[in-house]
Amino acid sequence: MAKFRGAIVVDTDRCKGCGVCITACPLGVIELAKEVNSKGYNYSFMANPEKCIGCASCAVTCPDGVIKVYKKAL
């Protein structure tokens, strides 16, 4: 069992849907949404929230800094 649970909050309106966070995530938590934001980009979202450990790999690679990461020890 993971010792940490994490969560990300994506600023969906600023996300440009480049997909860099998806390859950066070691656990396959993130996917691109089918819906688009006001700029027409498919924003990223937490598709598998139970897998997230809050490593922040997605946030440090995000070119637009739209991801906030939360981490809680169990």
Binding site: M1, R5, G6, A7, V9, P49, G54, A56, A59, V60, G65, V66, I67, K68, V69, Y70, K71, K72, L74
Partner: peptide, 19 residues
């Protein structure tokens, strides 16, 4: 243990990374 919800995690004191 497994009852932890996203609302419990997304709290200001648990923030580890932001712009």
């Amino acid at each position: 243990m497994s009852e932890i919800t996203l609302q419990d995690i997304i709290q200001p004191e648990n923030l580890v990374y932001e712009k």
